[in-house]
């Protein structure tokens, strides 16, 4: 792997936005393959960040600044990505469920997924079940990802899964849920496909299921 790519990767991990941007611009000018920058710098960096978060070495600020550095570099690469490299790994519709305004966790999952090469449609917070259904119809995603931080709003997840079922679109998608009060058992009970304890695991789960 080229030194330039290695350096972009380490700057993204450390959340050095300016450096990561400059080096990406220079690398592109020098003819480094944009697809390689995407895969070996950005996607690889976010994977490292996710692991560091899961292991306790990184916390929210480190994760947030890294994800921000990544999202700033991304638009530089986009116009250069052609053919297979421009292909998204998959598409996800994401939102915090009805009755819940918490969005930090959801935003982190969104950035991590983008960093992993997914297209993400963010429905925001306090998203009612029919909004999820509508988004599935309009966007044809691979995944519907729901976040809830309050025990009481976990029931909104159940309602959303039911609404997806009733609308006849449940079969076309995989449903993932996350948030502090959740458990894998709850995910199973409401008929979701998977539960992720953190953003990193969510990306891993999507990677496993996307094919």
């Amino acid at each position: 792997m080229s030194e330039a790519i290695e350096s972009i990767k380490s700057n993204v991990i450390r959340g050095k936005r300016k450096e990561a941007l400059e080096q990406t611009q220079r690398a592109l000018a020098a003819g480094v393959d944009p697809a390689a920058i995407m895969k070996d710098a950005l996607i690889a960096a976010m994977s490292v960040v996710g692991q560091k978060y899961s292991s306790g070495e990184f916390f929210l600020p480190q994760m947030m600044i890294a994800a921000r550095a990544m999202t700033e570099v991304l638009p530089l690469l986009k116009p250069h990505l052609v053919g297979a490299a421009a292909q998204k790994r998959g598409k996800a519709v994401i939102g915090t469920v009805a009755g819940d305004f918490h969005d930090i966790g959801k935003n982190i999952v969104k950035m991590m997924l983008e960093g992993a090469g997914y297209e993400v449609v963010d429905l925001g917070v306090d998203v009612p079940a029919d909004k999820f259904v509508e988004a599935v119809r309009n966007e044809s995603p691979n995944f519907v990802l729901m976040s809830s931080l309050i025990t009481l709003t976990m029931q909104s997840m159940r309602k959303t899964v039911e609404a997806l079922q009733a609308a006849g679109v449940r079969g076309a998608i995989r449903v993932g849920v996350g948030g502090a009060p959740l458990t894998a058992k709850f995910a199973q009970e409401i008929g979701a496909d998977f539960y992720s304890p953190d953003a990193h695991e969510c990306v891993e789960a999507c990677n496993r299921l996307v094919h």
Binding site: G99, D100, F101, V125, D126, I150, T151, L152, T153
Partner: peptide, 8 residues
């Protein structure tokens, strides 16, 4: 019933 306090 305090339930509405638990939801936005």
């Amino acid at each position: 019933n305090p339930e509405p306090l638990g939801r936005a």
